[in-house]
Simulated scan of single mutants.
Amino acid sequence: MLTIGEFAGVTGLSVKALRHYDDKGALSPADVSHPGGHRRYDEAQVRAGVLVKTLRDAGVPLPTVAAAVANGTAMEELQAHRRDVLRAREAEDAAFDRACAVLRALSVPVEVVEREMPAQAYVGRVLTLDPDGADPVVGDDEANVAFGELFERVQGAGLGPAGMFWTAMREGERGAVDLVCCWPTLARAGADWHEGDTIVGELPSRRELTAIWRASSADLPDGAVHPALVALFDRIGDRRMDMGGFEVRQSVVSAAGRDAAVEVSVTLAPHE
């Protein structure tokens, strides 16, 4: 039989690792002397020791290693572990690429201006975000469906639309956040529009703070916080403004001969 030091020398495992594997039941010695507790290994255990070291060096989890050695499935477990590693690596690469795209977008200068805006009637569809965070983001598909349905109704009623749509985020009930998909209308819609998740409102004549993003959004990952929103809150923070209960509005503005711009706004002061 081999002492623990001899077994370590033959298999390439450290004495510390062998003691750990014994404690975990992954590779136990053939004999432990009493008194003293000296571990001794059978020569036939060398193969198991080499398999344990080989699989652990490849990153296979210890419980899986123990099962593989016991069941004679070392190659199968190694291949399964490799598939898991490749999936994890692919996910990490995708996360890295996404992070790079977000950081590049955040480095693009954003114009932030104050401007006077006239009153604007609108109709909107309310999509409530989960207050518990189980479903924190309303998907683009859901918002697009809401915009499409609302557009058809506004057009059918002869109310416009009177311009480009916008989305607004506002505080909802019981800690929820509402995303409101809005179309500007030529006139204020009647009370009969207030049904279900459809609302009628009017943005008052106001002074607002607006961040304008004129770069291409093609490389901005889906679900990423828009750089214009970040720039707007940078300015709000610089001014030490208290924006509790605020409403943030985001719109896409097209201009002839120019790329579409994303505008994100908050009201500074409504006009009487």
Results as ranks from 00 to 15, higher is better:
E76C: 04
M1Y: 09
A143E: 08
T128A: 09
S14I: 01
A191L: 13
R82I: 11
L127S: 05
A95R: 13
V138A: 06
F233A: 03
T185I: 07
D23R: 15
A88M: 09
G36Q: 07
F96S: 13
F96A: 14
M241K: 10
A44G: 08
Q45A: 02
M75W: 13
S216M: 03
A91R: 14
P35Q: 01
H38W: 09
E6I: 01
L103W: 10
G12H: 06
G223R: 07
A67W: 08
D234G: 10
V113K: 11
G196H: 10
L18Y: 00
G148F: 03
A99H: 12
D192F: 06
L209E: 03
H81M: 02
P270H: 04
G156V: 06
P131W: 08
A67L: 10
V85F: 04
M243E: 06
L229D: 11
E90I: 07
A48H: 11
A119P: 07
D42S: 13
E208S: 10
P184M: 04
L268D: 00
V200I: 12
V46M: 00
A48G: 05
L229V: 11
R258V: 07
G156M: 08
A68F: 01
P136Y: 02
V110N: 00
F246S: 15
T73I: 07
A26P: 02
G158E: 06
V112R: 05
P109M: 01
A70F: 02
F7Y: 09
S217V: 12
P227V: 05
G201D: 09
A191D: 15
A176K: 06
R235M: 12
E152C: 10
R125N: 11
A99Q: 15
A119V: 05
Q45C: 02
W213G: 10
A134L: 15
T73S: 12
A191W: 11
V180K: 00
A157R: 08
G156C: 02
M243N: 05
P29W: 06
C181K: 00
A94H: 09
E149H: 11
V177D: 10
V225M: 12
Y41E: 01
E195I: 13
A189W: 08
P227K: 00
Q45P: 07
F7T: 01
V32S: 05
D259Q: 12
D140S: 13
T64Y: 07
I199K: 01
S251K: 10
G133A: 06
V113R: 15
Y21N: 02
S217E: 14
V85A: 09
L86D: 15
R56Q: 06
V60L: 12
T267K: 03
F151H: 11
W166F: 14
L203A: 08
L13E: 01
A255T: 15
P270Y: 01
P131T: 04
D93F: 12
